[in-house]
Write a protein that binds this DNA or RNA. Structure first.
Lengths: 259, 259
DNA sequence: CAGTGGTCTAGACCACGTG
DNA sequence: ACGTGGTCTAGACCACTGA
């Protein structure tokens, strides 16, 4: 029974686990600038005192911040702040709509095509379906405040695509449409590279052929591990930057040679 | 004292923590193909049985795999495999030398310049030094099996650069040289974007001006949180891909608008 | 409803770092 | 030498999944 939690960290008691509340409180302390990069976080003992929580719970909260790259821990030394928090990285990385809104910009889309066709073998492999299966493929131009910034070439397994045919994909997000059918996005894999704009992409982006584009190939998985989508997004090079943090204590970014 | 560990997971007992050994054993099981994406991991209880470890320790091992994006957990449901492991992402992302070796390629470098000069204000901010301080700046062309693939523009605080002057930076890694002076790399922040090759970069890379490049701006921190290096690396677009995995349960990759 | 993972406690010993 | 974070145990209750 989690009762009154300390004066300093985490006041309200909802259904939220104590370690999540403490992590949020610490994250806020860093975000507010009260603790700057290089400063020291309170130690486990101090946090136990302040919150009344057991050490394991306190450590779980700190582990969350460490995984987010906000703090750094070393055995024997005090935990120190590495950087101010930036984004909620998950949904912003997957959903153009969520990302744009988070930027304070107005997301839009222009549908170019949405058709059912036989699947490309490479895409079939990513979606873990048969080489002779059908997929829905979609081409959309994504707009930021009305300006085209990205061309999206997406492929969906038949079962998923069928749910999208009736959705208004110029207004809303694919993921929002799928969520209405109870399909939640749980994880994504990404491959990022730089390429020159081909003629077709250039025309859709109102850029010259050969313009540098940031290419993001993406496979998105549902909660049950099933592939939902494979997409090849091509961003105008001047419209996007990817941020990554990595440390000895964990990172999701890896670099490798192209296939 | 961790004594005999179960028949199945983790045999040898060195100074390695039990949860790390169990995580490795599970990772190997996935890597070997014995467990494929979609398959179920043994439950906590089964792993406790097999290893003789307490539940907390078992859970720590599984948490490691989850943070690596290898497995997915949901309350109430069995833990399932998401993907096969790929790389050790940490050192490969920071060190060209380590990355190249890991690829089975032969890394090289051609030093263009290493000079001490006054610092650019933007770089001063990244390195957390004064606007009037001096830095060492280095330009190197990085080679993969003798072929130029990247131009590196790096800046080091005076104290760090002084350690590099006498090192052979055409043969070895900067980080290897720093490690010899007791300076260990602990974390890095990265900004990734796509740009067109400028004339100078193009010449060094033996490419045409305007060729798409993947740009990786990087700030590297030592164990004590001190910035060691700020670098602007420009890769031939056809020579590099970045891999990322993210899930609701943690990710280090975030997307944002350019400054 | 049985089994799973998620959370939490209260204690203990250890390796490491810093004064 | 002391305090720090890292590891580990043994037990408990809960929320949720899935048959």
């Amino acid at each position: 029974m989690v009762k009154a939690v300390g004066k300093r960290y985490g006041q309200v008691d909802q259904g939220v686990p104590a370690h999540v509340r403490l992590a949020s409180a610490l994250r806020d302390t860093i975000a507010s600038g009260e603790l700057l990069p290089g400063d020291l976080l309170p130690g486990d003992a101090a946090l136990m005192d302040a919150t009344g929580l057991a050490r394991g719970t306190v450590r779980q909260a700190v582990a969350t911040l460490r995984a987010e790259g906000l703090v750094q821990t070393r055995q024997g030394a005090r935990t120190s702040v590495l950087q101010r928090p930036r984004l909620q990285p998950f949904s912003e990385l997957l959903s153009f709509t969520a990302w744009a809104r988070q930027q304070g910009a107005n997301p839009g889309a222009r549908m170019v095509e949405l058709v059912r066709r036989s699947v490309d073998p490479a895409v079939a492999h990513e979606l873990r379906i048969g080489d002779n299966d059908l997929v829905w493929t979609m081409v959309r131009v994504r707009l930021l405040d009305g300006v085209p910034v990205m061309v999206e070439h997406a492929a969906y397994p038949e079962r998923i695509g069928a749910l999208l045919v009736d959705a208004d994909l110029e207004a809303g997000s694919v993921y929002a449409a799928l969520a209405e059918h109870g399909i939640e996005v749980a994880s994504g894999h990404h491959r990022i590279s730089a390429i020159a704009a081909e003629a077709a992409d250039a025309e859709l982006l109102r850029a010259r052929p050969g313009t540098p584009l940031l290419r993001q190939e993406r496979t998105v998985f549902a909660s049950d591990g099933t592939p939902i989508e494979h997409s090849d997004d091509r961003w105008r090079g001047d419209s996007i930057v990817l941020d990554a943090v990595n440390s000895v204590q964990g990172s999701q970014l890896a670099r490798r040679a192209p296939d």
